[in-house]
């Protein structure tokens, strides 16, 4: 490539990156520019906002725990075994990724609602999900588990098979190999999966609103509280948004840092 050609190409790359960065950070930056530090503090003093944030942290933590417990072995199975219908199973697990949140909410109601597929059966054994905190967790698990499972499946698939084989020949069962070799080796990637799923859960809005409603202290997570205030008090909505962004960013940063530390330990290892 000639020198002017090379320069033009570099200018194109730099320009595209600059435009992308601006576009993606502008709304986030605007939240913090418009909501001063005073507004943020005032928002933290508002019991409705505090309730919403607290609930958000609780339900997302519960959802991530459920996803980890059920999703990790499922991802291992999908990554290590061949069986008929594997491609279909993988696709079904990824389906919620492309489902519109509103459709996800309707789907959850149709399945678990009072008139739903298995809702009445659950009610008979005393489990009521719609309009409850547990319902919020169900909605969060539904929309965010694919983010983790996809990542975990790829992580397990990328592991060096000979490590697993070595563990087996050293007397470890497959379950022990999974716990003592596969999980530690895949940890950095699994952490990324957790961060992605947690981030998605923190921002979840549509499915939660439709399936669980927006009741303060019960089902009103931070995004729902923001939406409720948006109708009456834009500044308060803005302040709460800023807090949610900060909390999410801090949470993801911590997970990323831990994962990075894990990865560095592996690099040294």
């Amino acid at each position: 490539m000639s020198r002017p050609g090379r320069l033009a190409w570099t200018a194109l790359l730099v320009g595209a990156t600059a435009v992308t960065l601006c576009f993606l950070t502008l709304p986030v930056a605007a939240i913090f520019v418009d909501a001063g530090p005073g507004d943020l503090l005032k928002s933290l003093g508002d019991p409705v906002a505090v309730d919403a944030l607290q609930l958000s942290l609780q339900v997302t933590a519960a959802a991530v725990a459920v996803i980890l417990v059920a999703g990790t072995p499922a991802a291992w199975l999908l990554a290590t075994r061949d069986f008929p219908g594997k491609a279909l199973a993988t696709t079904l697990i990824e389906l919620p990724l492309i489902l519109p949140p509103a459709a996800a909410g309707i789907g959850l109601l149709a399945a678990l609602g009072p008139q739903g597929l298995i809702g009445p059966a659950l009610e008979d054994i005393g489990i009521e999900l719609p309009l409850t905190t547990a319902g919020v967790v169900v909605a969060l698990v539904f929309v965010s588990s694919p983010f983790y499972i996809r990542q975990a499946q790829a992580a397990f698939g990328d592991l060096d098979r000979s490590m697993m084989d070595a563990s087996r020949t050293l007397g470890a069962s497959e379950a022990r190999t999974f716990a003592r070799v596969a999980i530690p080796l895949a940890l950095p990637s699994l952490a990324t999966g957790i961060a992605l799923a947690w981030g998605r859960a923190l921002g979840e809005f549509g499915a939660t609103l439709m399936f669980a409603g927006s009741f303060r202290g019960v089902t009103q997570t931070a995004p729902l509280a923001i939406f409720e205030r948006f109708a009456t008090d834009f500044d308060a909505a803005l302040a709460l948004s800023a807090v949610l962004v900060a909390v999410s960013a801090a949470l993801l940063l911590v997970i990323k840092l831990l994962a990075g530390r894990g990865a560095r330990m592996h690099a040294l290892a």
Binding site: S162, M163, D165, A166, S167, T169, V181, L185, H266, A269
Partner: peptide, 14 residues
């Protein structure tokens, strides 16, 4: 009861 030495040794890095 097999002791197996793998090609790239497959030592556990962690």
């Amino acid at each position: 009861s097999c002791g197996y030495v793998f090609q790239e040794y497959a030592l556990f890095p962690h």
